[in-house]
Design a protein around this nucleic acid. Sequence first.
DNA 1: TAACATTCTTAAGCAACTGAAGTTTCTCGT
DNA 2: ACGAGAAACTTCAGTTGCTTAAGAATGTTA
Lengths: 386, 386
Amino acid sequence: MSDAAVRPRRRGARERVLDAIRAAEPLSRVELATMTGLTEAAVSMTVRRLLDEGIVVESGLAPTAGKPRRLLRLDPAARIAVGVYLDEDTTTYVLTGQTGGVLSRLARPAPGSADPETLSRQVLADVELLFTGAGVERERCLGVGVVWPGPPGATAQDLGTRLSAATGWPVLVENDATAAAVGEYWVARVGPEQGFAALYMGSGIGAGIVLEGRAMRGGRGNAGEFGHVCVQVDGPECVCGSRGCLEALAGPRTVVAAALADPVAVAEAGLDPAEPRRSVIADFAAVARAARADAPRCRALLEDSARYVAAAAESVLNLLDIDLVVLTGPGFAAASFVYGPAIMRRVAVADRLTWQRSVTVTVSLAAATASATGAAALVLQSHLSR
Amino acid sequence: MSDAAVRPRRRGARERVLDAIRAAEPLSRVELATMTGLTEAAVSMTVRRLLDEGIVVESGLAPTAGKPRRLLRLDPAARIAVGVYLDEDTTTYVLTGQTGGVLSRLARPAPGSADPETLSRQVLADVELLFTGAGVERERCLGVGVVWPGPPGATAQDLGTRLSAATGWPVLVENDATAAAVGEYWVARVGPEQGFAALYMGSGIGAGIVLEGRAMRGGRGNAGEFGHVCVQVDGPECVCGSRGCLEALAGPRTVVAAALADPVAVAEAGLDPAEPRRSVIADFAAVARAARADAPRCRALLEDSARYVAAAAESVLNLLDIDLVVLTGPGFAAASFVYGPAIMRRVAVADRLTWQRSVTVTVSLAAATASATGAAALVLQSHLSR
DNA sequence: TAACATTCTTAAGCAACTGAAGTTTCTCGT
DNA sequence: ACGAGAAACTTCAGTTGCTTAAGAATGTTA
């Protein structure tokens, strides 16, 4: 029987080697050869080039019965990337090394004006500050990732063009969920064979889906609209114009609105309905904190939301035949203790009975700041193949 | 701004050229060069090799202001493929040319025994008959595609191994929905940039998803479990062990069961509840025929099912950012006149209001026999890159 | 200290593709 | 009718990236 139909797509040696080191460093050349399917000679040449460029370094030996293996790692500081997350109320900047580790961070109140010119100047100034503050050479920067809550539209693209023109760096624009997924792929050392869905809760719910080491972007860059998966045919109307969308039934806005409408929940979470709302996420986090402290009403609100999220997650897992879910973003950072178990419970029965599958649900290590580091990881990912 | 992150994956020249000709024949060499991104020199050499192999033929000229273009097509008879569809009650065999056109067909009652040895001998004999009947040289056969309703398990893999050993041909085993999707991709000349979901209704509901010219198979070859997308959080229990699955709420079994339980529908569709049931699809088709003839109760049953299918389809479209749905398989072949419009209606509002997208819903040309021709197309697809 | 095991490197060669410069074969204007 | 021009296609000499095969380096073990 032939396996022609499942043969992995071809990638260059450089890309395969770098991806393997990223996912499983430290590695020796022989290990790289078996992992990538390249010959030892090809690995040797590729690695030498990477060593010459300073991207990879030799560090340490692994003893064998013969000549010891020379272990290779990415040099964290050799190449760096900038990540920018333009959230509703805050703009976050990070500078990461090429392993995805954060070198420097900067948070700013969101610029009031949405005028592209002003916005671009503000971001440029902040990035400047980030570099001078961290004392990092600009030459090592590979590019800038800009992340937007929700699908990037014309404004975002415009900002990207301006930044690219002003800095000379490549600028990648993405939505928060996809960026978080790529960040998770990079930082959590997910292997390229492991497909996964990163569910992201910020002011809304989205998903970044990574299959075969590549983020799904879809025909118009809108893939991962997890929030508009239907979990109830005749559910309430959604802002998108359809009915029964996850976001309308279980999104953070809905949870917060329900909490504000319930005096008990308001008291539990210490919300002040009279005050002007700051941000959805701040209120949602307050509800989550209360729930964690065993406040029953807040807990019930989250559990209710989690039931829907779990159903939608199950749909995605079944549709794409994936067995890993990563919860990320500030929303899940605050409330994963409810959502994680809810997803596990939902999929457990069918996994055992029907799919012979064992779904893992994890929480991203840096869930709260996943978007900004993810933005930087987008740049790193795009430079795998140079 | 860089587009590094959306750069298409690399494929060999041969694969790209063949895929382009498949999708848009007839094509000249210059057109191929622009479409594939290869240089004219590379196309020229690749095409000459394909001409030498007899895979491609020159047929006709297209006038220009200068030297006319020499148009290239696939020679339909140069290479052939066998498709086998092992349905519950019938086994269908097709012999197709490399353009996906059916050269010869054979239908058999399903072998009673599920014993792999007997099954394999039966299939071998039938394939033999197919070749002698069509008078086609065995040497031109590229391989056999075997399609199974639902995910292929150990039995299917075993059959594949036996067939491959006995014939010497590569044997590909797939589920019906994925095969139908690949068949649609091949026969309907879908371009590699056009992602789509082929919804398949046979005895169950599945989906084959094709993105960037590749069928999604998932971690364990189970991708496309459209029937187990949740459309109602607390819906009825499904055989899979979960709740609210599309298949439990709106699958053909459910529709038929509802029809049988309703005397009016039984009369409309001319069903005989006393008789032992033949096949789900036969009963479902009877309901669809009645609905088409304006029988109100049968129509209502289908409309009800279609509401759920439409919601699940919308979920998939949003999640993957796809704008093409193909309805295929015997179920949709009989009832697309209900399901097609239902999907269109469901997505229309949000498409305009939110996604700026225009979803197309089409019915496969050979929906009723899509699995068998799809099985053959799997083989053709796998031989694009040799 | 010699034999061995293993890792890594080097060198020659091949296959696929690119770039640049032809060659062919038509149309069009005179 | 015929030369100029236009466009399609081909040829040829690199270049790149990999493979195969042989060899050098560097440790363990008897």
